[in-house]
Design a protein around this nucleic acid. Structure first.
Lengths: 201, 201
DNA sequence: TAGTTTCGCAACGACACCGTATCGTATGAT
DNA sequence: ATCATACGATACGGTGTCGTTGCGAAACTA
């Protein structure tokens, strides 16, 4: 009998250090451009300074490891509620822009873009936790704009989401190619250009 | 001495059949989702019904093979010159949409999107032959629109290109995920939505 | 016919991973 | 002290791909 209801299993407990090292190594490798298909357990173990056994003991397969690793990258998803729709949209799009600057969130992009049907479970899981919330947030802002009359009542909201996100995605891809970072005011310029079509006037 | 100035080298000539089979097999495999990194010469040879030797004799490495294979996919790039800018833009965007329906051109998308910095030469080559012409065509249409007064004189043309292409790209990606084909009128809807911001009045 | 080159095929040694097993050691509870 | 488990390290047999080589047959020139 143990004191706590959660009975600690006998024997040496699993190392938190090792677990974190494994997850970090996984994210590092993916962030460096290794695709999920190419990612090898051996490489993760070597990078993490860990025996392969320690990895196999915790994760049944590669997908679960990557899935858990990505889950640790919780999207902060800023809750902006500015005065105007324009401000909010710029804020969200600018998060998208800044994400491309950090290594960790670039991991997400790599996976999200490259292997949709190869690892469907993985993609599904990632989509639910990363894509959908952001999409919902943007949808809410647009719907609020329609409600307040700031935006056209007949605005195709899903299309609007696609236009804003897609444009930033386009620039993100272009920036990844020719190493020029995205302009600071890019989000504002996209939104402004788009709003001339979205605004009710 | 031979009769012709182009001296045919002695010995058995290289098989056109084999060459075509190799290129086709390469495109097939890539089209089925095999990334360039994963693409193995062995698999290409097997698929093509050809010995590995025959491949190594013609191409020094994988990148050149893939590069030549992609080069055979010459983008038709329809030369539309409709009456209105809207018609032309819809036409170009609709080509983009239809491309996602065919296997072969989906090869291009896969490569273009997934491995920009892993195979820089390959990406560069593809970008020049496939992306830039289309971008230039769309730029020409937009500039013509500005010249005729159909579009705002202060229109940011590069941004406009990004908005139109990016939006279609966004839908393309979404469609690749949940197998729903893109709506027939998608191109028109994107252009119409965008033009409300682009049109001078 | 003789000479040359390519053909498809099979085999080679080398390397990278796979997933598992077996070490001796370390870390905890009882 | 004893027991149970996890640790890192190493090695195993198996598979897949690499790029190369040797082979006999085929294709074409001179």
């Amino acid at each position: 009998m143990t004191v706590m209801g959660t009975a600690r299993p006998a024997g040496r407990p699993r190392s938190e250090r090792a677990e974190k090292a494994i997850v970090d190594a996984t994210l590092d490798l993916i962030g460096e451009g290794t695709s999920v298909s190419e990612l090898s357990i051996e490489a993760v173990a070597a990078r993490a300074g860990v025996g392969k056994t320690t990895i196999y003991r915790r994760w049944a397969n590669k997908e679960e490891l990557v899935g858990d690793a990505l889950a640790t990258l919780k999207a902060p998803l800023p809750v902006v509620e500015g005065r105007t729709v324009r401000e909010d949209l710029v804020a969200y799009l600018d998060v998208m822009r800044q994400d491309t600057l950090t290594l960790r969130t670039r991991c997400i992009m790599n996976i999200a873009m490259s292997e949709p049907d190869r690892h469907p479970n993985l993609y599904e899981r990632f989509h639910k936790t990363a894509i959908e919330p952001r999409r919902a947030a943007m949808r809410a802002v647009l719907e609020r704009g329609v409600a307040t009359g700031e935006l056209r009542p007949d605005l195709d909201i899903e299309l609007a989401i696609g236009m804003l996100s897609g444009t930033m995605l386009w620039y993100t891809k272009g920036a990844a190619h020719n190493n020029t970072p995205l302009a600071d005011d890019l989000a504002a310029r996209i939104v402004d250009e788009a709003l001339r079509g979205f605004l009710s006037r």
